[in-house]
Computed example of a mutant assay.
Amino acid sequence: MSWILYIIQTKSGKLYTGITTNLERRFKEHCSSKKGASFFNFSEPDVILYQESHINRSEASKREYHIKKMTKQQKLNLIIQSQMKRS
């Protein structure tokens, strides 16, 4: 089972970083507000901007910690770089 690190942008422009094994399910949970992170009680999730796979929870958690320490601009740069690689 692989773990996915993801960044969601809210409708107000804030960024949320998390990890999961099922991104589609987790995004729906965030949107429902019952099972989602309390972060989304104040800012409604809008779109998944970024995702990367990791071989286990430990590696995903380490990367999540690293990204959460980034500034918003650094996170946006990461997102832009990943989109440029896909083009």
Rank of each mutant, 00 (worst) to 15 (best):
M1V: 15
M1H: 01
M1L: 04
M1Q: 15
W3M: 05
I4G: 11
I4W: 05
L5Y: 02
L5K: 01
L5H: 01
L5D: 00
Y6H: 03
Y6F: 12
I8Y: 07
I8R: 02
I8D: 07
Q9H: 03
Q9G: 10
Q9V: 13
T10F: 06
T10R: 10
K11A: 08
K11E: 13
K11S: 04
S12H: 03
S12K: 08
S12N: 13
G13K: 01
G13P: 01
K14R: 10
K14H: 07
L15F: 14
Y16E: 07
Y16K: 09
Y16I: 08
T17G: 12
G18I: 02
G18E: 02
G18N: 03
I19W: 05
I19A: 06
I19Q: 02
T20R: 08
T20M: 03
T20A: 00
N22G: 05
L23P: 14
L23V: 15
E24G: 11
R25H: 13
R26A: 11
R26T: 15
F27K: 12
F27N: 06
K28D: 12
K28Q: 11
K28S: 15
E29N: 14
C31W: 00
C31D: 01
C31P: 06
C31L: 11
S32D: 11
S32P: 00
S33P: 06
K34N: 08
K35N: 15
G36A: 05
G36W: 10
G36R: 09
A37F: 10
F39Q: 11
F40H: 06
F40Q: 12
F40M: 06
N41A: 09
N41K: 15
F42D: 14
S43T: 15
S43Q: 14
E44G: 01
P45F: 06
D46Y: 13
V47Y: 05
I48T: 13
Y50L: 10
E52R: 15
E52C: 03
H54Y: 15
H54F: 14
H54Q: 04
R57Y: 04
S58I: 08
S58W: 11
E59A: 03
E59S: 13
E59P: 00
A60M: 04
A60D: 12
A60G: 11
S61R: 06
S61T: 08
S61G: 07
K62N: 02
R63M: 04
R63F: 02
H66Y: 05
K68N: 14
M70W: 04
T71A: 01
T71K: 01
Q73V: 07
Q74I: 08
Q74T: 04
K75Q: 12
K75M: 13
K75V: 10
L78A: 03
I79P: 03
I79C: 05
I80C: 00
I80S: 09
Q81E: 11
S82M: 13
S82K: 11
S82T: 13
Q83Y: 10
Q83E: 07
Q83R: 04
R86D: 10
S87N: 11
S87F: 10
S87D: 05
